[in-house]
Structures are given as C-alpha cells and as structure tokens.
C-alpha cells in the first residue's frame, strides 16, 4: 500500500508541479493523505461483517 501510494503521489506531484520544492511538498501531502485515508477506511471497515 505504501509502495503504491509512493508511486502514485510521485507521478502526480511531478505532473502537477514544476518547481522541485513544490513537487516534494505536493508529493508528501499526497502520500500522507493516501496512507492515512487507507488506514482510516481500514479501521472504519473493521466492524463490518465480511
């Protein structure tokens, strides 16, 4: 999941921003957002019977 989030945030950050510092910031935010959202959704789905 972290590897997937890394690749996706890397490509999107480089696509969306031109300045390397902004790319790093956007990529970091996106990576953190993806990982945190996945963990949060995982915890929310925990009580659901599957």
């Amino acid at each position: 999941m972290c590897l997937f989030a890394f690749f996706v945030s890397l490509v999107f950050a480089v696509l969306l921003r031109d300045d390397p510092r902004e790319q790093l910031r956007t990529g970091g935010l996106m990576f953190g957002g993806l990982v945190c959202a996945a963990l949060l959704l995982g915890w929310l789905a925990y009580p659901l019977p599957l």
Binding site: L3, F7, L10, V11, V14, L15, P20
Partner: peptide, 17 residues
C-alpha cells in the same frame, strides 16, 4: 528532463512491481 526521467523510472518500475 527532470519530469521525463522521473516518469521513465517510476512508471516501468510500477508496472514491473
């Protein structure tokens, strides 16, 4: 160049993974 190199490395790496 910078963008091209990142895509050249990251996308095939993602596919190979």
């Amino acid at each position: 160049r910078q963008k091209g190199l990142v895509f050249l490395l990251a996308l095939p790496a993602m596919f190979l993974t």
